[in-house]
């Protein structure tokens, strides 16, 4: 078979549950990613996006609330930056914007090779596995880039203020149910879980029921069937 040839990005069979080993005897890895982009349209960031009140909210109270919660829970998250100052990032995300016609990101034919050439250590939204895997860029030279799993069913972008605030859908319960169901399944398998959150959406308080959405995370943490929850984020930049 003309392996790859615009069909596949990785090998024929993914890593099996039994073959996965996490450091320090941990049962599974859970990645938490905070996406700090203005979540505008599927175009470049504009001055108008940056003047947008909800973006302002996300960078202030939304993000603060996340950080406070993560502190309380003793977890570390990866923040997805749209512009880098200072240290070079190790990872790169090609996440979808709410109005993109697919929920799987915008990697092009060249993205992964370019990342590889620029020294990135991983791409953050691999969709061909739910454990970390290698995205092959050149099978002849055995060149590949680490891909961390992403699936839009665990990304708040598609559940809160979707596709746009004010006209959109608000379905926190479906998001929480997906997180819980996947966590249960992956914990049993000893595999990997990933939640993606936007500071501007999940960080927001709901005025109507006075319950911060960020508390969903705390609620997930408190589920009796999920304790003892010892997951850590191994892939923080």
């Amino acid at each position: 078979m003309p392996w790859k040839d615009f069909y596949t990005t990785s090998d024929e069979i993914g890593i099996r549950d039994a073959a996965i080993q996490w450091p320090e005897g941990q049962s599974m890895a859970l990645g938490l990613t905070v996406n700090l982009n203005p979540a505008g349209a599927g175009k470049r960031i504009t001055a108008k996006d940056l003047a947008y009140p909800t973006w302002h909210y996300g960078l202030k109270e939304g993000l603060d609330r996340f950080l406070e919660l993560f502190d309380q829970l003793g977890i570390r998250a990866t923040e997805v930056l749209t512009r880098v100052t200072g240290q070079a990032p190790k990872g790169w995300f090609a996440l979808s914007r709410p109005d993109d016609r697919a929920a799987t990101g915008c990697a092009t034919d060249d993205t992964v090779s370019l990342l590889k050439a620029r020294g990135y250590a991983y791409i953050g939204n691999g969709l061909a596995d739910d454990a970390p895997y290698y995205w092959v860029t050149d099978p002849a030279k055995s060149e590949s880039l680490l891909a961390l799993p992403y699936y839009y069913h665990f990304d708040d972008t598609f559940f809160l203020m979707f596709p746009r605030e004010g006209i959109g859908l608000e379905r926190p319960q479906a998001l929480l149910s997906n997180w819980r169901a996947e966590f249960r399944a992956q914990y049993r398998r000893g595999r990997y879980g990933r939640r993606n959150r936007r500071a501007l959406a999940s960080g927001a308080s709901r005025r109507d029921d006075a319950e911060p959405r960020a508390k969903h995370l705390a609620r997930l943490r408190r589920q009796p069937e999920l304790s003892p929850w010892t997951a850590k984020t191994f892939w923080t930049a």
């Binding site: 990005t9 990785s10 799987t104 990101g105 915008c106 092009t108 992964v112 691999g126 061909a128």
Partner: peptide, 9 residues
Amino acid sequence: PWGQKAKGE
């Protein structure tokens, strides 16, 4: 795009 194909993969 590749993300879509990888979803199927």
